[in-house]
């Protein structure tokens, strides 16, 4: 269980980074949408793609946490 929790800390920290990143993306996209409502659709698509890319980075971190131990098994 101790091994698992170390991975969990790593995953949690990665989640913080991803959270900040996705928050920034959402902020930027919303500001853009507010300024240019006609570009909403374009912005939304790009926002989702960018968020997925950032999320992937967080998941890289999770995978790296997995590399070292067995997910608590």
């Amino acid at each position: 269980m101790v091994v698992g929790s170390v991975a969990a800390i790593g995953a949690g920290l990665a989640a913080i980074g991803a959270g900040i990143g996705i928050g920034q993306i959402g902020k930027g996209a919303l500001e853009g949408m507010a300024r240019q409502p006609e570009a909403t659709n374009d912005l939304r698509t790009n926002m989702i793609v960018a968020a997925a890319l950032v999320e992937a980075v967080a998941l890289f971190a999770v995978v790296v946490s997995l590399l070292g131990n067995n997910l608590g098994v």
Binding site: V63, L66, L67, G68, N69, N70, L71
Partner: peptide, 9 residues
């Protein structure tokens, strides 16, 4: 090498 989780092998 690290002892790799079978999930990422």
């Amino acid at each position: 090498l690290l002892e790799i989780n079978p999930l990422v092998l």
